[in-house]
Design a binder for these strands. Structure first.
Length: 354
DNA sequence: TAACCGTGGAC
DNA sequence: TGTCCAAGGTT
């Protein structure tokens, strides 16, 4: 083991973050593969703070991969709502069912890599954290830490092979899982993107970027292009008994698998779409805005109070007692907030009485 | 390779 | 208010 790895493990033994999916470092305990896998998938491009509540709810409802595998799609998607990147939830279910079918998780990085939603990072992380395999774990934290310690000047993402070899050179055969988590903790708490706390870093002495005072400029990244703006429209229909007209979005669309309001496509500049049911649709003045990772979206909102017996051409009615705004992805929640400024939606029964 | 795929918090 | 970004994967 290198001196750097030893120094970092010593630091980790004293400063490891306490997280719901972790066991204490150096305890000899190993967390269940199911919990490691679930946490790693949730943590893909997502902050620890955002994941905690979702992780607790998922593990409380579904304590094993077999339990999760048996759940209906819609139930899991509703529980995932708000966490984003919904392909993760679709792959999560596909993976759970494959694992349940084969009788457990593969115990090697290569085996894990075959499963849906498990890429190079996640396969390495599960193999090393849950099974103790020596695997080279490279996430955004590791990229930043290695780029600084070795003063990598090649811009990301082209620097990935170089960074991988640096991480490989430091990863020990003993406690490789703790080492991987230690680098990630270092990146999350000390070697942060902005204002790194070099003064208290266990790697402050060997760090080349700190020696050269260029740590703020590492890693070098290629500029990303500006996000375009798109428009569309959404229909929020509510029946006189309070039921909501919703559709499950196709898996090949944006927000695939999630509940949403029927409306236009957003990708062809189309602001027109047939209403999902006959009725007196009223356009509201306010628009719903939402920022996605690669475009901004503005939606016109049309609302209608629909009579009992209405037969929708798109979507289906969901009883008011079954509906919660938390089942919706955030963009659709924004549409709902705008729609609820109209009494037609906010209080359909009041209209009936009037 | 590069585009696509969400969200909320920090600054 | 705008920008950046987080334990990435898929195509």
């Amino acid at each position: 083991m290198t001196d750097l790895a030893r120094d970092l493990l010593d630091w980790y033994d004293r400063h490891a973050r306490v997280l719901p999916w972790r066991v204490p470092p150096g305890s000899g305990e190993v967390p269940e593969p199911y919990r490691v896998w679930l946490s790693e998938v949730m943590l893909q491009q997502t902050t620890v703070a955002a994941v905690k509540g979702y992780y607790e709810r998922f593990t409380a409802r579904w304590p094993t991969v077999e339990a999760l595998a048996a759940v209906e799609d819609a139930e899991v998607m509703a529980e995932w709502a708000g966490l984003g990147y919904y392909a993760r939830a679709r792959n999560l279910l596909a993976c759970a069912r494959a694992v349940a079918e084969r009788g457990g998780f593969p115990r090697t990085e290569a085996g894990l890599r075959e499963l849906p939603g498990i890429g190079p990072y996640t396969a390495a992380a599960i193999a090393t954290i849950a099974f103790g395999e020596r695997a080279v774990v490279v996430d955004g934290n590791v990229e930043r830490v290695m780029a600084r310690v070795f003063d990598v000047t090649t811009p990301l993402p082209a620097a990935r092979p170089e960074i991988y070899s640096h991480a490989d050179s430091l990863t020990p055969a003993d406690r490789p899982g703790d080492f991987a988590q230690a680098v990630m903790d270092l990146g999350a708490t000390i070697c942060t993107p902005r204002n790194p706390a070099c003064a208290i870093c266990p790697w402050r002495e060997p760090c080349l970027a700190r020696q050269r005072s260029v740590q703020a400029e590492r890693p070098v990244k290629l500029p990303k292009r500006a996000v375009p703006q798109r428009r569309g429209l959404a229909y929020v229909g509510r029946r006189e008994d309070g039921a909501w007209l919703l559709e499950t979005r196709g898996a090949d669309r944006m927000l695939g698998g999630m509940l949403g309001w029927p409306g236009s496509a957003w990708d062809r500049g189309e602001e027109e779409a047939e209403p999902p049911a006959p009725g007196d649709w009223v356009a509201l003045n306010a628009e719903a805005r939402h920022g996605f990772s690669h475009f901004g979206l503005t939606l016109r909102v049309l609302v209608a109070r629909l009579p009992m017996g209405t037969e929708p051409s798109r979507g289906a009615f969901m009883a008011a007692s079954e509906f919660r705004p938390g089942m919706l992805p955030t963009a659709m929640r924004r549409v709902l907030e705008v729609a609820e400024t109209s009494p037609l939606i906010r209080d359909p029964e009041g209209i009936v009485r009037a």
